[in-house]
Simulated scan of single mutants.
Amino acid sequence: MSNVPVARPRIVCLCGSLRFSEEFAAERTRLTLDLAIVLAPEATEASVLDSSLVQALGELHLRRIDLADEVRIVNPGGYIGEATRREIAYGTASGKRITYLHEPAMTDT
């Protein structure tokens, strides 16, 4: 057991395209070492998911945002897709702090 005191840790939800798995892993590690609790979607092995399952997984991810103090957008090169835009809008409407791996262009948000 560690002697390092950890008060109420910051909870960070990672959002972005799962094609950036290496960047997600790097952010997860960096934030964990910064003593944050990290919530993130999990990539699935299935190549084709049923549309109702895709919708349910999207809603599940919004519940992760509900639990978070901060929404961290993993967006290498500034890329932000449609689902991530929805998550940013949801986090913003919920009063969450939104941060980015790479700052988006003003027209991206």
Results as ranks from 00 to 15, higher is better:
residue 5 P to L: 02
residue 72 R to C: 13
residue 56 A to K: 05
residue 17 S to K: 07
residue 2 S to E: 01
residue 54 V to L: 14
residue 89 A to V: 13
residue 105 A to F: 10
residue 57 L to N: 11
residue 45 E to A: 13
residue 7 A to E: 05
residue 42 E to D: 14
residue 6 V to Y: 00
residue 90 Y to I: 14
residue 12 V to N: 03
residue 21 S to Y: 09
residue 64 R to I: 04
residue 70 E to K: 02
residue 32 T to R: 05
residue 53 L to K: 04
residue 42 E to K: 09
residue 44 T to K: 06
residue 62 L to P: 12
residue 27 E to Y: 04
residue 88 I to T: 06
residue 93 A to I: 13
residue 59 E to P: 08
residue 55 Q to P: 04
residue 95 G to D: 05
residue 43 A to V: 13
residue 50 D to A: 03
residue 81 G to A: 12
residue 30 R to T: 12
residue 71 V to G: 04
residue 27 E to F: 03
residue 65 I to H: 10
residue 21 S to H: 09
residue 57 L to G: 13
residue 80 I to T: 00
residue 6 V to F: 00
residue 20 F to K: 00
residue 107 T to A: 02
residue 10 R to I: 03
residue 86 R to Y: 13
residue 48 V to E: 11
residue 92 T to P: 04
residue 59 E to A: 03
residue 52 S to M: 09
residue 2 S to G: 01
residue 69 D to L: 05
residue 78 G to A: 06
residue 36 A to W: 02
residue 55 Q to W: 13
residue 3 N to L: 01
residue 78 G to K: 00
residue 33 L to S: 07
residue 46 A to Q: 11
residue 71 V to L: 10
residue 59 E to N: 13
residue 49 L to D: 14
residue 66 D to C: 07
residue 61 H to R: 05
residue 102 H to L: 03
residue 22 E to H: 14
residue 44 T to D: 13
residue 78 G to F: 06
residue 14 L to P: 12
residue 88 I to N: 03
residue 46 A to R: 09
residue 33 L to Y: 11
residue 9 P to H: 02
residue 22 E to N: 12
residue 92 T to V: 04
residue 14 L to R: 01
residue 76 P to T: 01
residue 26 A to F: 09
residue 52 S to K: 09
residue 52 S to N: 11
residue 84 T to D: 12
residue 105 A to R: 05
residue 39 L to S: 04
residue 23 E to N: 08
residue 40 A to I: 13
residue 43 A to W: 09
residue 96 K to Y: 02
residue 77 G to N: 00
residue 90 Y to E: 05
residue 31 L to T: 06
residue 44 T to C: 12
residue 86 R to I: 15
residue 92 T to E: 06
residue 11 I to D: 00
residue 30 R to Y: 08
residue 101 L to K: 03
residue 15 C to N: 05
residue 43 A to D: 11
residue 29 T to F: 14
residue 68 A to L: 08
residue 47 S to W: 06
residue 5 P to S: 00
residue 108 D to G: 00
residue 41 P to D: 09
residue 38 V to M: 06
residue 42 E to F: 06
residue 25 A to N: 14
residue 40 A to T: 11
residue 95 G to T: 08
residue 76 P to Q: 02
residue 31 L to H: 02
residue 28 R to K: 09
residue 49 L to S: 11
residue 18 L to F: 15
residue 90 Y to N: 04
residue 66 D to W: 08
residue 84 T to K: 02
